[in-house]
């Protein structure tokens, strides 16, 4: 039965997959069959049949590990010695990690803001034009591909060739610089701008999301409001400033906070494009490095907890805005 754990060929892999699905279906059928006795079992037994397995999964695979991680964050690198808040102190005071926090802050502020602004402008511009569907699809596609794929796409755009005689640039951005008469740049190496060039990739991915949500919100602005504003003489930019933006405020908050949280946890782009070198490291990738490269479990746990704690203000802001919106309504 070794092949169930270590399948070799593609056929064996698909066979294992089939086994897993069949096992799962059999297990679920058994549970459902056991609880499906109308009016004979107390309702909590039936409920347990339905929610027991999922809740068990969550308790075991999310809640318990989160507790262990919190616990480990107060211990040293191999969890043998209690060190109090040392790991957190290190994460916030050592200059190496302060740099990581600073870069992460740049990500969490810039990526949501710029994707939302670009997404909003684009949604307004293509709204109700003949090409709307096609135009939106173009911007939405990056949302479908993996961040690894997007990173490779952009790494190629940033590709650098030294400026010597006959050597041609093969990265588009450096070629544009060349056409404009500037020397080529190592976009991914020069600090601090390299972080900006990495953030561009996140913006490129997330703008499609912002555009789609905001476009739906714009379409749901009641016609009477826009009509009344038009009769009052509002046009173009004024309409945008005084009617569109206030009307879709709740959607803007959702988009901003959602992208901020996605950005905070994303490590794929940094890992694929620079590996966290040249001062581009972010908390999510530093966690991975500490946990699986440096094997410093205490510090890794502390960084994971920091990641969790940083989510909380974003959520709090979101909930507050939602409450305010509800009161107004």
């Amino acid at each position: 039965m070794d092949w169930l754990l270590t399948p070799g060929t593609a056929g064996e892999k698909f066979a294992v997959m089939a086994v897993a699905i069949v096992l799962f279906v059999a297990m679920m059928s058994l549970i459902l069959f056991a609880v499906d006795r109308p009016r004979r079992l107390p309702s909590w037994v039936v409920a347990l049949g339905f929610v027991g397995l999922p809740l068990g999964f969550l308790a075991f695979g999310l809640l318990r590990p989160a507790g262990i991680t919190l616990w480990n964050s107060f211990f040293n690198r191999n969890s043998t010695e209690f060190v109090g808040f040392d790991n957190y102190v290190r994460a916030f005071t050592e200059s190496q990690f302060q740099q990581v926090l600073l870069v992460t802050a740049a990500w969490v502020i810039l990526a949501p803001l710029l994707s939302t602004v670009i997404g909003l402008v684009y949604a307004v511009l293509v709204d109700r034009t003949r090409f709307e569907k096609f135009a939106k699809a173009l911007v939405f596609v990056p949302m479908a591909i993996s961040m690894v794929g997007a990173s490779i796409i952009w790494k190629f755009v940033y590709e650098f060739r030294p400026d010597q005689g006959a050597i041609q640039q093969i990265g588009l951005l450096n070629q544009v610089l060349a056409w404009l008469g500037f020397p080529p740049q190592q976009f991914l190496i020069g600090q601090p701008w390299n972080t900006g060039f990495l953030i561009v990739v996140m913006i490129w991915i997330q703008t499609g999301f912002a555009m789609t949500v905001l476009s739906a919100a714009i379409k749901s602005i009641p016609d009477d409001i826009t009509e009344a504003a038009r009769l009052d003489g509002l046009h173009g930019a004024q309409m945008f400033r005084y009617i569109t933006v206030p009307s879709i405020r709740p959607a803007l908050v959702v988009v901003l906070t959602t992208i901020a949280m996605a950005t905070l946890k994303a490590f794929d782009i940094v890992r694929t494009m620079t590996g966290g070198q040249f001062g581009t490291q972010v908390v999510a990738n530093e966690f991975y490095t500490q946990a699986f490269r440096q094997n410093n479990q205490g510090l890794a746990a502390a960084l994971a907890v920091v990641l969790f704690v940083l989510v909380i203000p974003i959520i709090a802001y979101n909930v507050r805005q939602m409450r305010m919106a509800e009161e107004i309504r």
């Binding site: 590990p65 989160a66 991680t69 989510v311």
Partner: peptide
């Protein structure tokens, strides 16, 4: 306890995967 459990499950959404990886 249905509502409490549901809120608990619902709020687990904010937990970043990173906190669960190493123990799992």
């Amino acid at each position: 306890g249905r509502n409490i459990l549901f809120v608990a499950v619902f709020s687990l959404q904010i937990v970043p995967l990173q906190v669960a990886l190493v123990p799992l």
